[in-house]
C-alpha cells in the first residue's frame, strides 16, 4: 500500500534512526511511503498547555496537506505516538464535532486549506500488525532472534485515550511481532506505563523515577522495544541517572523496526542502530552472529 508518511520533528533529529528503520523495514516489506510535502510540527504534547486551538490547528494542517496531495481515504502513517494522537484526535473531531470543524477550517483558511476528516490516521504498529500482518513479516525473517528476550514497551499516547487497535491497559499487539522474529517476549505489566515524557525537561525527579521503575521491571530482558521517540529518548539517554543506587543493570533500547531490520538480516547501520544511545555491543553481536550462522 502507499502511505502518506508523517515523520514528525523528532524523526528528523534525535530519533533519526526511527525514521531510517521505519522506511527501511516498510520498503523491505513492499510498502510505499510518500512523505507529506511541507509538513510541519503537530504540536506534540507541549502545545495543549498553551493554546487549545493550536492543539487542533497544527495537526489539522498536516491532514489537510495529506488530503490535498493524496486525495480522500489517504492513509496517513505516523511512527511517533504524540504525533499519532494529535493527528487522530483532530481527525475524530473534524468528523464528529461540527463547531470544532468550523473553527479548524477558519484557521486553515489562512493557507487556503480545508479539512473535514477525509483521511485515515494510522500508527506504525497498527500498520505492521493489521495491514502487513504477522505472516508476511514472519516470511521475511532470515535471522531469527532466538534466545533474545525483549520487553515490549508501548508507552501512553499510542493507545490512550483512543485504544484503536489494542487494549489500553494491557496491550499485547507487539507480542506476535516479536514472536514472528523468534524473540522471547519478556512478560511484564508495565508495557503501557508512562516514561515521564516531557517531565524529563520540567521535573526530572519524577521522570527519572518513572524510567527507573520501567528499567527495574524489565530486568531479565536483553532489550526494550519502543514505538515512540519520547519513550526511546527517556529510556536510553537517562539510564545511568535513573539507576543511580540501584542494582539493576542497563538494558539495550531499540525501536521496534530496528529489531525487525535485524531479524530480516538487514545491515544494522542501515537501520541506524549505530545512532542509538543504549545498544550494548554484546547485544548487537548476539543478534548479528545469527546472520553469519544463517549465511
Amino acid at each position: 500500500m502507499n502511505y502518506a508518511y508523517y515523520p514528525g520533528c523528532s524523526l528528523t533529529a534525535s530519533a533519526v534512526e526511527y525514521d531510517l528503520s521505519t522506511r527501511l523495514v516498510l520498503e523491505h516489506l513492499g510498502e510505499q511511503l510518500t512523505e507529506i510535502e511541507d509538513w510541519t510540527c503537530c504540536g506534540a504534547s507541549a502545545v495543549e498547555p498553551v493554546s487549545r486551538l493550536l492543539t487542533r490547528a497544527l495537526p489539522a494542517r498536516n491532514l489537510a496537506l495529506a488530503l490535498a496531495q493524496g486525495g480522500k481515504d489517504t492513509q496517513v502513517l505516523a511512527p511517533c505516538s504524540a504525533c499519532y494522537l494529535n493527528l487522530l484526535r483532530v481527525n475524530r473531531e473534524a468528523v464528529s464535532d461540527v463547531a470544532s470543524r468550523a473553527e479548524l477550517n477558519e484557521a486553515l483558511s489562512s493557507e487556503a486549506l480545508a479539512y473535514a476528516g477525509e483521511v485515515r490516521v494510522r500508527h506504525l504498529l497498527d500498520v505492521l500488525l493489521n495491514d502487513i500482518g504477522v505472516e508476511r513479516i514472519g516470511e521475511k525473517v532470515v535471522n531469527p532472534l532466538e534466545g533474545i528476550r525483549i520487553a515490549p514497551y508501548y508507552g501512553c499516547q499510542i493507545l490512550r485515550p483512543y485504544p484503536v487497535f489494542d487494549d489500553a491497559e494491557h496491550p499485547v499487539s507487539m507480542e506476535s511481532l516479536l514472536q514472528a522474529m523468534d524473540a522471547t517476549v519478556h512478560e511484564w505489566g508495565l508495557g503501557g506505563r508512562c516514561c515521564g515524557a516531557s517531565l524529563m525537561a520540567t521535573n526530572q525527579a519524577a521522570a527519572l523515577a518513572s524510567v527507573r521503575g520501567l528499567l527495574e521491571a524489565a530486568q531479565g530482558a536483553d532489550a526494550i522495544a519502543t514505538v515512540c521517540p519520547m519513550c526511546q529518548m527517556n529510556l536510553e539517554a537517562y539510564q545511568s541517572r535513573a539507576l543511580d543506587g540501584s542494582s539493576a543493570r542497563k538494558l539495550s533500547i531499540l525501536y521496534l523496526p530496528q529489531l525487525l531490520a535485524l531479524s530480516f538480516g538487514l545491515e544494522s547501520k542501515q537501520a541506524g542502530i549505530h545512532r542509538n544511545l543504549a545498544v550494548s555491543s554484546d547485544f548487537l553481536t548476539r543478534c548479528k552472529q545469527r546472520v553469519s550462522a544463517v549465511a
Binding site: 520533528c9 523528532s10 510541519t40 498553551v50 493554546s51 525537561a201
Partner: peptide, 25 residues
C-alpha cells in the same frame, strides 16, 4: 516560569515550522 517550556516550544514551532530540538533546549 512553569509554563516556560511549553511557551518556548510553541515559539520554536512558530519560527521554524518543525521543532528544532537543540535550539529549544
Amino acid at each position: 516560569r512553569h509554563g516556560n517550556f511549553y511557551r518556548l516550544f510553541l515559539n520554536n514551532v512558530e519560527k521554524y515550522g518543525r521543532v528544532q530540538e537543540s535550539t529549544l533546549m
